[in-house]
Nucleic acid binder design. Sequence first.
DNA 1: CAGTGGGCTCGAACACTGTGCGAGTCACTT
DNA 2: AAGTGACTCGCACAGTGTTCGAGCCCACTG
Lengths: 247, 247
Amino acid sequence: MPEFTDSVWTRPARPRTGQPTLSREQIVRAAIELLDAEGAAGLSMRRLGARLGSGATSLYWHVANKDDLLELAVDQVMGEIYVPEPGDTPWRVGVSVMADGMRAMLLRHTWVIGLLGVRPTIGPNVMRMGNRSVALLLAAGFTGPALSHVHSLITAHVIGAATTEAAVAAAVQRAGQSAAEIREQLEPFMEKTAGDYPDYARWRQESGVTEMDPDQVWDQSFAFGLERILDGLELWRVNNIGDTSAA
Amino acid sequence: MPEFTDSVWTRPARPRTGQPTLSREQIVRAAIELLDAEGAAGLSMRRLGARLGSGATSLYWHVANKDDLLELAVDQVMGEIYVPEPGDTPWRVGVSVMADGMRAMLLRHTWVIGLLGVRPTIGPNVMRMGNRSVALLLAAGFTGPALSHVHSLITAHVIGAATTEAAVAAAVQRAGQSAAEIREQLEPFMEKTAGDYPDYARWRQESGVTEMDPDQVWDQSFAFGLERILDGLELWRVNNIGDTSAA
DNA sequence: CAGTGGGCTCGAACACTGTGCGAGTCACTT
DNA sequence: AAGTGACTCGCACAGTGTTCGAGCCCACTG
């Protein structure tokens, strides 16, 4: 049984002296490229080796595991998220910027989503991000467990929204068809089952949601949710902290 | 390239006449048991066949793919979620019950989480759930795109919260150690890196979160977030619908 | 009652996966 | 010149999802 703290981040790095042809950074970068291009299923150690012009097993000198490699890749792309410094803007804006950035990152690297539920990441980039988030929320007046809850709430919204969006995007891409074609194909299925799900069918028709641009709907849905969350947090903040002037 | 609608749910079921020793329901049930017991990595067609006392390839008569099987399993467990009828309770309570139920399901079957981002499910149980959610939110006064946004917001919170909770739970389970032991192990790592993440380290110490029961913290965090979301929605509802009396 | 077709099971095989092991290469120190 | 250690890599092993074709057995038709 491995110790809890036995992960890429706690194991000492190998000393580097020679002029190796491969490096951990290079491997991680190539892995991310492969994952972006072909999804989680597209990454195999052999294919990654080939892409780097070296044998598959050479990678194991620089990386203990495929799991470790994935953890490194996740932390790497987490570093792409920009978390504003506290004080630059009102806290709502700061949080929104972070949330939007995180969402964009997850949609750029959809393979990350499937890994988030498998194992928590405590790499340097994630830690740095966490530290800046804490600073941001401290400046907003949140403290103690509430600060943690607020942070969880924001990230949960981003992860949850990105999850379903990515799922649909993947299905659409697999189908290789336009949104209009898919809507057309889906129609008979919807009509056939409309009797079984009357409320859903009626709402679907009346809402006019079928005639909107899907990408816009995703954006609006995410923004709507985030605004409601921030409203709810503001309300709580006023009632429990009472300082409405914090940046 | 497969059509978008080419999935388990749209393909006609095979006619069944003989007295087969295997059935699709039985296979799905066994798969879920295996997944619950050993996680996503524990399910292979050969192991599943062995568990059912039959050859691995026999399964392919009842199920086209491993992917299809997983989709069936996901829809199956989705059916475990209880969505209250509209009118039974105030809408906040109804939504809370659904959210709590969904969270509990995801934590019972953590393997589902990793599949949610891969492909959207449109199985009968998910559709039924969707229909009841629509009914619930219609009764609360939400209509049009806003209804969809509200539904997305709730499920996103559940999925996002369950994702990070499941990740930590999996790591703890892999370590096979108590929360106290893990905390002890983590301490030196935290102290060593405290200088790099000063805000985080300071908050961690002052907040006292390290001395709380982790399970309770998860529960509280989820409930806190849900309350803030419902507050935000209530606010929006009053401003945009104006009817505060809807059940 | 014989025969045939189709629902259903399954073993062999293929192409692939992650990874342990040991041999080999090279730059550098002693 | 010998050796040491960083690094690369081919082979092999156990395991994966899935295809194919052979075979079973039951319900039907002639």
